[in-house]
Simulated assay, not measured.
Amino acid sequence: MFKTSLRAFAALAGALLLAGTAPAADKLVIAATQVPHAEILEFVKPTLAREGVDLDIKVFSDYVQPNLQTADKQVDANFFQHKPYLDTFNKDRGTHLVPVAAVHVEPFGAYSRKIKKVADLKDGATVAIPNDPSNSGRALLLLARQGLITLKDPSNIQATSLDVATNPKHLKFRELEAAMLPRSLDDVDLALINTNYALEAGLVPTRDALFIEGADSPYANLIVAREDNKGSPALAKLVQALHTHEVKKFILEKYKGAVVPAF
């Protein structure tokens, strides 16, 4: 009788222990720049927790380390870049990162503290543009659409200042790291700035940009991973959480047109 009771007690204790032990959550580590990428990820973090995914967001201030750390398996994926940048990075660095899903577009804009409209741009003005090929091409294409320059190949998304065909105002181009562009505004006449860095600097693209890309921009920002983990269940749950009406509403209300959903 005593042995039977002891066995019953052990079985009950084991059942209670199992009932009180929740399955371990899948950890998903994502590298992201702060605005808007990390903010969007923070918004979906509670949703993922309910789906059994512990989202760990690593914030970076540059465009190089997130890709390097993804390739080196220090993080699972990243969220900060568009496909032209990814393609250039893979080619230059010998990496093999792949897009998983598009989330939003950040319309690229031109800013100035010295002029109020494009017509005021003086002959010989200094224009700051990003120094990485995909974003410098994006900046030059935007300048060309404003009629400020023409390019040898108007479809070349990786154009550099060497690809400028005509430059009626004799603009002088200063190529800087993308993160440094907002700080250059006091020193240049015009700066072409990625929206995430514009937002971090307190600029409101829809208010402060002299001109800006339309919502039809092809530069959608992506979740990017490695070939070996692009189809992981945790990443699939992240994409599902991002592609929702709630996230679309969050983006539209928080960024007021400076960030546009791409799904």
Rank of each mutant, 00 (worst) to 15 (best):
M1L: 14
F2L: 14
T4S: 09
T4Y: 06
T4D: 03
T4E: 06
R7G: 09
A8Q: 13
A11I: 14
L16E: 11
L17N: 06
L17T: 15
G20F: 10
P23V: 14
A25M: 13
D26E: 15
K27S: 09
V29Q: 06
V29W: 01
I30K: 00
A32Y: 05
Q34R: 12
V35Y: 09
H37R: 01
H37M: 06
L41F: 11
E42N: 12
T47W: 03
A49K: 11
E51K: 15
V53L: 03
I57E: 04
V59C: 02
S61N: 12
S61D: 12
D62H: 08
Y63W: 11
Q69M: 14
T70N: 01
T70Y: 02
T70A: 05
A71E: 14
A71S: 13
D72Q: 11
V75E: 06
A77F: 00
N78S: 10
N78G: 00
F80S: 10
K83T: 10
Y85V: 07
L86T: 05
F89Q: 08
K91M: 03
G94C: 01
T95D: 01
T95F: 06
H104Q: 13
V105G: 02
P107K: 08
F108N: 01
Y111A: 02
Y111Q: 04
Y111M: 05
S112K: 13
S112F: 13
A119M: 13
D120I: 05
A125F: 11
A128H: 06
D132T: 15
S134R: 12
N135H: 13
N135Q: 14
G137K: 09
A139N: 03
A139C: 06
A139V: 09
L140T: 00
L140Q: 01
L141T: 12
L142P: 03
L142V: 06
A144P: 13
R145S: 11
G147Y: 07
S155W: 02
S155F: 09
N156K: 14
Q158Y: 15
A159D: 10
A159G: 10
D163Y: 05
A165H: 11
T166I: 04
N167D: 12
N167R: 10
P168T: 03
P168E: 01
E175H: 11
E175V: 04
L176E: 14
A178L: 06
A179G: 00
M180A: 15
R183F: 14
D186C: 00
D187M: 10
A191G: 13
L192F: 07
N196E: 07
Y197N: 07
L199H: 04
A201K: 12
L203V: 13
L203D: 11
P205K: 13
P205G: 09
L210F: 15
F211G: 08
I212D: 05
E213F: 12
P218E: 08
Y219K: 10
A220T: 12
N221W: 01
L222Y: 10
I223Q: 01
V224D: 02
V224E: 02
V224Q: 02
A225Y: 00
R226L: 05
D228H: 11
N229K: 02
N229V: 01
K230A: 15
K230L: 02
K230Y: 03
L235M: 07
V239D: 05
Q240P: 00
L242N: 03
H243M: 04
T244R: 04
H245P: 05
E246P: 00
F250A: 03
I251M: 03
L252G: 08
E253L: 06
E253W: 02
K254H: 11
A258R: 08
P261W: 04
P261Q: 08
P261F: 06
